[in-house]
Simulated scan of single mutants.
Amino acid sequence: MRKWFGRGLRLGLAPDGLALVRTGFWPHEQAQLLAQARFKENNIDAVLREAGRMLADQEGSGWALRVVLSDELVRLWQVAPPPGATRMADFEAACALRYQALFGASPAGWQIRADWSATRPFLAAAVPQTLLAQLQAAASGSGFRLIEVQPQFVAALNQHRAMRRPGAWFGLVHGGVLSVAAFDGDKLAAVRTAPIPEGADRDWLEGHVAREALRVGLGRPERLQVSGPAPKGWASSAGRLKFACTLFEDELDPLWPDSARLAMTGRAP
């Protein structure tokens, strides 16, 4: 069955929609949008039922399935490691305490993963365990191997990590929202999210980045590198001296829905 090696499915899930995409043998091989659905209101239970139906309609038993979750379905936060901590139990306890402080509840019922570090603040993510169980049941019930579930922002950050330039912050545009990873040197200092107003131009972007820099106690970045369907006017142009802005290009069909772009977040270029 060598002809199937490297092929797989990518599923993008948001509270109001989803899309299933098939990827090919080679990284640059054109992906195929297999199915997509949109709901008028947020209804994750309906989205998960539709995901099960979509998977049941596909052939390719044994194929790998990767799932990308919109950030509305997960929780992301920064954790400062306890001074002198060396045991994983110490990091996990600090992570849970920070979670409770931010979200006002115990992390029971959520599965937590993090970029654990004893020397610098790290990013943590939590996904509802019930959601993970339903995804696993839908995948195995249709003969697919669920090998990865990632929040969209984490997937995008990892995808472009090697391309981040010194002094740059990273941004992701998704569903009318801009999420920004603020870096202090090579250390991730904060993740900030804000809706993008209609008609947001370069002046709005510069004002937004300046305000976020003040909020997190950092200087304005030398460059902002942005992934996703950002306004073209955000890119650097002559006379712009406050900071440069680079828009990462993608080869996806511009007519694809946001849920399909969500599914493809994190795929190697």
Results as ranks from 00 to 15, higher is better:
residue 228 G to M: 01
residue 161 R to L: 13
residue 24 G to Y: 14
residue 263 A to E: 02
residue 258 D to W: 06
residue 201 D to K: 06
residue 250 D to P: 02
residue 265 T to V: 14
residue 40 K to G: 15
residue 268 A to L: 12
residue 208 H to T: 08
residue 131 L to C: 05
residue 98 R to M: 12
residue 89 A to Q: 09
residue 123 L to K: 04
residue 45 D to G: 12
residue 119 T to V: 07
residue 17 G to H: 14
residue 89 A to I: 12
residue 5 F to H: 13
residue 5 F to N: 11
residue 127 V to Q: 00
residue 113 R to K: 09
residue 28 H to D: 11
residue 153 F to P: 08
residue 131 L to D: 03
residue 37 A to I: 09
residue 252 L to E: 11
residue 90 D to T: 03
residue 55 L to G: 10
residue 269 P to W: 06
residue 261 R to D: 02
residue 218 L to K: 09
residue 83 P to M: 09
residue 20 L to W: 11
residue 231 P to Q: 10
residue 134 Q to C: 11
residue 87 R to A: 13
residue 92 E to D: 01
residue 209 V to G: 04
residue 13 L to N: 02
residue 248 F to L: 07
residue 172 L to K: 00
residue 92 E to H: 03
residue 77 W to E: 06
residue 44 I to F: 13
residue 188 L to G: 06
residue 45 D to W: 11
residue 258 D to F: 08
residue 201 D to H: 05
residue 69 L to M: 04
residue 183 F to E: 04
residue 86 T to C: 04
residue 133 A to D: 14
residue 68 V to E: 10
residue 150 Q to I: 08
residue 62 G to Y: 14
residue 167 G to Y: 03
residue 169 W to K: 02
residue 211 R to G: 05
residue 163 M to F: 07
residue 106 S to G: 02
residue 55 L to M: 13
residue 220 R to N: 12
residue 1 M to A: 15
residue 89 A to H: 04
residue 172 L to W: 03
residue 139 A to W: 00
residue 51 A to E: 05
residue 6 G to W: 14
residue 256 W to A: 04
residue 241 L to I: 07
residue 61 S to Q: 14
residue 84 G to F: 13
residue 88 M to C: 02
residue 24 G to N: 11
residue 199 G to S: 07
residue 91 F to H: 14
residue 26 W to M: 15
residue 36 Q to G: 02
residue 80 A to S: 09
residue 252 L to C: 06
residue 204 W to D: 08
residue 221 P to T: 00
residue 256 W to I: 00
residue 56 A to L: 09
residue 140 S to K: 03
residue 166 P to R: 06
residue 227 S to D: 15
residue 241 L to K: 12
residue 101 A to M: 11
residue 104 G to K: 08
residue 108 A to D: 12
residue 134 Q to R: 15
residue 133 A to G: 00
residue 216 V to M: 03
residue 221 P to G: 03
residue 183 F to C: 01
residue 146 L to A: 01
residue 110 W to F: 10
residue 142 S to M: 09
residue 253 D to M: 07
residue 29 E to N: 05
residue 131 L to K: 05
residue 65 L to Y: 06
residue 69 L to T: 02
residue 25 F to I: 15
residue 120 R to F: 03
residue 38 R to Y: 00
residue 106 S to I: 02
residue 73 L to G: 12
residue 195 P to R: 07
residue 167 G to H: 01
residue 234 W to I: 03
residue 134 Q to M: 08
residue 102 L to E: 04
residue 71 D to V: 04
residue 3 K to A: 14
residue 161 R to M: 08
residue 50 E to M: 10
residue 180 V to M: 09
residue 95 C to M: 14
residue 235 A to E: 00
residue 58 Q to M: 08
residue 169 W to P: 00
residue 10 R to Y: 11
residue 107 P to D: 07
residue 66 R to P: 05
residue 138 A to Y: 07
residue 117 S to I: 01
residue 213 A to P: 00
residue 74 V to M: 07
residue 30 Q to E: 15
residue 148 E to R: 13
residue 44 I to Y: 10
residue 11 L to T: 00
residue 126 A to V: 06
residue 98 R to Y: 00
residue 68 V to K: 01
residue 82 P to T: 05
residue 85 A to S: 13
residue 177 V to L: 09
residue 122 F to A: 12
residue 26 W to N: 15
residue 63 W to G: 05
residue 202 R to A: 06
residue 131 L to G: 00
residue 43 N to C: 13
residue 174 H to G: 07
residue 128 P to H: 00
residue 57 D to Y: 07
residue 74 V to W: 04
residue 157 L to F: 15
residue 64 A to V: 11
residue 256 W to N: 04
residue 139 A to C: 02
residue 204 W to E: 10
residue 114 A to T: 00
residue 116 W to C: 03
